[in-house]
Structure formats: C-alpha cells, structure tokens
Amino acid sequence: MSKLYLTDRSAIELMRTDAFPRPHEPMLLGTNDIDDAATRAQQIKELERAFGPLRVTPPYHIFAPDKRSRRSSKLAVCRALPEGLVSPSFVSIDDACACAVPELAYLYICQRDELAEHVRCAMELCGTYALGPNERDTVTRYGLDALSSKEKIRTYAQENHGVKGSGKALSALRYVCDGSASPMETALCMLLCLPPSSGGYGLPLPELNAELPVIQHLGGKRVKGVRYGDLVYRAARLIIEYQSRLFHENAGSADKDEDRRDDLEVMDYHVMFVTPGRIKDFERFEGIVQRVAHHLGVSLNPKIMGTTEERLELRNMLLGNVLAY
C-alpha cells in the first residue's frame, strides 16, 4: 500500500503530537525510495479507510517523487521531493506515513510567511514545548525533548542549500535561541530581540533556561549548586524571569522561585520578574525594554520606540491567541 510523506504544515502538525518520536532516528530517502508516495486523492482515501484519521488535518502537505507525479487536490498539497538531498531527511511514523525531519520541514515553512513566523517556528522546534497541533487543540505540552537545535538547522540548511527556503532559514536563525520552555518565553524573547522592522526592539539574544553555578545557603551551610535562569544575559549579570499565572496560583512554586532569586542575587545577578500582565500592557513592557537595555549598556534610539504598525502586528501574532500560563 502507498503511504504519505508529510512535509511543511502537516509535518509540523504531526511533530506537535506524540506520534513523532523524541528523539528520532532520521533516514535518507531519494526519489526511488518514495515511489510508493500517495499523491492521488483515491490513494489518500484508501489510507484513511485503512488507518482511520491520519493524525493531521487535511489538506495534507506531502512529497511526490518528482514534479511529474505531483497531484494537488482538495485532499493534498503536493511538492516534488528536492533533488540531491545529502542529509537524512525522513522519520518513519507507521505504515501509513513518514514525516520530514524538523530541519527539512522548516525549510519549507521558510518558503512563505515573514521573519517573525520563521523565528517563532524555529524557537518551538528548538524548545522543550509543543503547541496544540491545530486550532481545535490548543493544549500546549511542556517538558519535552527538543526536536532540533539552532546548530542542526543551520547545518542542514547549509548542506542542502539547493532547497528553496534555506537562505531565509539561515537569516531567521540570527534571532533564534535554543531551549525555550514555553510559548510565552518565546514571545518575550522575540519581542525584545527581533529587529524594529519586524516589530521588536533589536536587543541582543539571551541564553534561555541557562545553567548558573551558585552558592546555596542552607541553614548555616554554604553548598555549591546550580540554578536556572529563563532569559540570561550572563556578561551583564542580568536574568529575566517569566512568572506565569501558575506561579501566582501555586504558593510552593512562589517559595522556590524566591529561594532561586536570592541565590542568584548573592552571585551578583540582577533578577527582573516579568508577568503576563507586564508583557501585554504595552507601556509597561516598553519600560521593561528600557530597563533591560540599561543593564546591557545598549542605547535605544527613541525613534524605534512606540506603537509602530510592525510592533502591533508582532504583538497580535504572539499574544493575540496565546493563553498566558
């Protein structure tokens, strides 16, 4: 029986479910290896009858072996498998489908949309969370193994530079950080660091969820330990901590966060707390931007401040449909 070879939106959607393994073992496939690709509507309907729902929402974004065998329809958006792939590029899911690796799917994402969407997608692929696979399923999963990394995407794009989208992917990586633990951490990082032309403030990239050696004070003892900071500017000794709604609802979490803050401040870090309310309130957030810039020794041009069209669009994209947990 034929099978689907998912790419683009469908691949990303599958990666947001537990059907895509973390970690995964990629394999290299060429046009001769996917000549069983389901591209016709009848083939896809047969797969649906045999296997039931195929975990992703139609129309399916799929590969065909070559341009001649593409058969786009209401059920499928068909792409020709790029020639000359030199990196392992597929993961076998089951008898019904295989899926492009995150790095290949990302190159196809970068063929459309704008820089901010490219960065947001890469931050999710390189982070430890997964959004709901579609608009009906908005539950985000946390504490996952990262699907990829900034370096893996860069290496893949360079090795497969003939794939359309590789250039835009490499450009977007300038604004991507590994290790984001939530959509709101991603939003905070992007709002601070994207260039003003894309709605950000052009601040330097931080480290996300970085290890920080500290001396913990336990009673009368001083013990070497490790704490983690959400957004860390190590050279400037600045840490930005995102406090979700859960922080305010869980007293135990609040106590642990206060202990962590004290340990970090003893090591001469300045800890700045940011809540959902402070991010969503535009004037308060610009105050945060200016404080961060001050700690980093960055001089902000007054002309880039305020409610530009690009900034409002970015905030709507990042915050309009995100539950601030």
Rank of each mutant, 00 (worst) to 15 (best):
I12T: 07
L85A: 06
P213W: 09
K256W: 14
D263V: 00
A169D: 03
R315E: 14
M27N: 05
R311E: 08
I279V: 15
Q216L: 15
A98L: 12
P213H: 13
A130G: 10
D36K: 09
S72K: 02
Q43A: 13
L107Y: 08
R284Y: 04
S148K: 07
P133S: 10
N301M: 01
P206S: 11
L203W: 11
E207G: 05
D35H: 09
K224M: 12
E83V: 01
T39L: 04
G179M: 01
L205Y: 04
Y156P: 13
P53V: 01
P26Q: 07
G252A: 07
H161P: 00
N134T: 06
E46A: 13
Y201K: 07
P65R: 03
G252D: 15
R55K: 13
P213Q: 10
G306Q: 07
H61Q: 12
L191V: 00
T275V: 01
D262K: 08
P183D: 05
V274F: 02
E241W: 10
Y269M: 05
N316A: 12
E13F: 01
G202P: 14
S171F: 11
G179C: 00
L54H: 13
M317L: 15
L85V: 03
M272Q: 14
L85R: 08
L115K: 04
G252P: 09
S166N: 06
S73V: 00
H217K: 10
G84T: 06
S198W: 04
K67R: 14
G165R: 04
P302S: 11
C78G: 01
A181D: 13
R261H: 05
E286G: 06
I288M: 11
Q42F: 03
I279N: 00
Y228T: 04
A187I: 00
M267K: 05
M123I: 14
G320C: 00
I240P: 15
V176M: 12
A80K: 09
H295A: 13
A37D: 08
L29H: 10
A19G: 05
A187R: 04
V226T: 12
L28Y: 06
S182M: 00
Y106W: 12
A130C: 14
G200D: 05
L47H: 13
G52I: 01
V86Q: 15
R222S: 12
T138F: 07
G219D: 09
Q243W: 09
E185D: 09
K224F: 08
G162F: 01
G52F: 10
S87M: 11
R49A: 14
P65Y: 05
L125I: 02
I304E: 12
R237K: 15
A64I: 02
D33N: 08
R237N: 15
D262S: 08
